[in-house]
Amino acid sequence: EIRVRVEKDPELGFSISGGVGGRGNPFRPDDDGIFVTRVQPEGPASKLLQPGDKIIQANGYSFINIEHGQAVSLLKTFQNTVELIIVREV
């Protein structure tokens, strides 16, 4: 597990896919977790996150067994800083 802090400027600078009942993700199709799919170059998350990172927690909210829409809404709700716990396959 890796813990990262992303400062919104003005957005977080990454996209996610997956989630329960979602269209899945390109990295682990059998896993309904939330995965980072795109990281904006030079964006707030560019040095912190990589495509394929699985987000398991954001600001204390579990991202395990969460629906895609709910994950997106939560990330939009947070002000300024988001603390993520991620799992990265090496």
Rank of each mutant, 00 (worst) to 15 (best):
E1H: 11
E1P: 04
E1G: 06
E1A: 05
I2T: 05
I2L: 12
I2R: 06
R3D: 03
R3W: 07
R3P: 04
R3Q: 09
V4K: 00
V4S: 02
V4C: 05
V4H: 05
R5P: 02
R5E: 11
R5I: 15
V6M: 08
V6R: 00
V6A: 02
E7A: 11
K8T: 09
K8E: 01
K8D: 00
K8N: 05
D9C: 10
D9H: 11
D9F: 05
P10L: 05
E11C: 13
E11D: 11
E11Q: 05
L12Q: 04
L12S: 04
L12C: 09
G13Y: 03
G13R: 02
G13Q: 04
G13V: 01
F14K: 00
F14P: 04
S15G: 07
S15L: 09
S15T: 13
I16S: 00
I16D: 00
I16W: 06
S17M: 06
S17P: 03
G18F: 02
G18T: 04
G18N: 04
G18V: 02
G19H: 05
V20I: 14
V20D: 05
V20F: 10
V20L: 15
V20H: 11
V20M: 08
G21N: 15
G21E: 13
G21D: 06
G21C: 07
G21I: 06
G21T: 07
R23M: 14
R23I: 14
R23C: 15
R23A: 08
G24T: 10
G24K: 12
G24Y: 11
N25W: 06
N25I: 06
N25F: 06
N25H: 07
N25G: 08
P26V: 07
P26K: 08
P26T: 08
P26D: 07
P26M: 12
P26R: 10
P26Y: 07
F27G: 07
F27T: 09
F27K: 08
F27C: 10
F27Q: 09
F27N: 06
R28W: 12
R28P: 07
R28N: 15
P29Q: 14
P29Y: 14
P29K: 12
P29F: 09
P29I: 12
P29G: 11
P29M: 12
D30E: 11
D30G: 13
D30L: 11
D30M: 10
D31L: 05
D31M: 05
G33M: 04
G33A: 07
I34M: 04
I34R: 01
I34G: 03
I34P: 00
F35H: 04
F35D: 01
F35Y: 14
V36Y: 01
T37W: 10
T37V: 13
T37F: 11
R38N: 15
R38H: 15
R38D: 14
V39T: 05
Q40D: 15
Q40S: 11
Q40A: 14
P41A: 08
P41R: 11
P41K: 11
E42F: 12
E42Q: 13
G43S: 12
G43H: 10
P44H: 09
A45S: 07
A45K: 02
A45I: 08
A45Y: 03
S46D: 15
S46I: 14
S46M: 09
S46A: 15
K47S: 12
K47Q: 15
K47D: 15
L48N: 15
L49G: 02
L49V: 12
L49M: 08
G52C: 03
G52N: 04
D53C: 01
D53W: 03
D53L: 00
D53S: 01
K54S: 03
I55R: 02
I55M: 02
I56P: 00
I56S: 05
I56C: 06
A58D: 03
A58R: 01
A58T: 02
N59W: 03
N59Q: 07
N59R: 01
G60C: 06
G60L: 04
Y61E: 13
Y61P: 02
Y61Q: 12
S62A: 06
S62E: 06
S62K: 06
S62Y: 03
F63E: 02
F63T: 04
F63H: 03
I64D: 10
I64E: 15
I64A: 15
N65H: 10
I66D: 00
I66N: 01
I66Y: 03
E67Y: 09
H68C: 13
H68V: 09
G69I: 14
G69F: 12
G69P: 10
G69S: 13
Q70L: 13
Q70M: 12
Q70H: 12
Q70G: 06
Q70V: 11
A71F: 01
V72I: 11
V72S: 11
V72P: 02
S73K: 14
S73A: 11
L75I: 06
K76P: 01
K76G: 11
T77N: 14
T77Y: 09
T77F: 05
T77C: 10
T77L: 09
F78V: 10
F78P: 07
Q79H: 14
Q79N: 13
N80E: 11
N80T: 13
N80V: 08
N80S: 15
N80H: 12
N80I: 06
T81R: 08
V82C: 07
V82M: 06
E83C: 05
L84Y: 10
I85G: 08
I85Q: 12
I86A: 05
V87A: 14
V87H: 13
V87P: 02
R88H: 04
R88Y: 00
R88K: 03
V90D: 15
V90M: 13
V90K: 15
V90R: 08
